[in-house]
Amino acid sequence: MTNEELKMKLEELFPGSTFEEETQWLTLNMEAEGFKPVAQQLRNNESFNFDFLFCLTAVDWKTHFSAVYHLTSTALRHTIVIKVKIDKNDPAVDTVSDIWRTAEFHEREAYDLMGISFTGHPDLRRLFLEDDHVGFPLRKDYEDPINMIKL
């Protein structure tokens, strides 16, 4: 489907969807609440069929976090980006590791470095850092004078 068709279909299924303008791929903005049903639709609905999650990451916007999902369909060859807004004080969003298996590792990475907890993840632990590490390095307010990572 083209971006326009995707947009129309998404607006039909999820009224009130907001899109970003002038982006490389169609970008859908949404809140953490209600994300899981949308993800399931995107994977299982025949006309979307987004089966390949090629990137999952998290961003610290100081006032809030966002989780960014890059999805593509290997059969229909369309791509979409979903940006989920996550609360700063209680950073949590539903896991998608049961929909796309690759998310299991990617979510652990996002938890480890950004401190976002993915509700329902089967094995949410730190991935790179030690289990007793304090703080989340990719957050903008993170300071660590001993293991300096700023140049």
């Binding site: 090629f54 990451t57 690759t102 590792f105 990719l138």
Partner: peptide, 26 residues
């Protein structure tokens, strides 16, 4: 994959590297 989020400055606001080995290992 290289994913850069820019705020218009001289350095990236956030960089994510989507490395193939990471997904393959999973």
């Amino acid at each position: 994959g290289v994913y850069i989020i820019s705020e218009g400055g001289t350095t990236p606001y956030r960089i994510k590297y989507r490395s193939p080995g990471f997904s393959n290992l999973s």
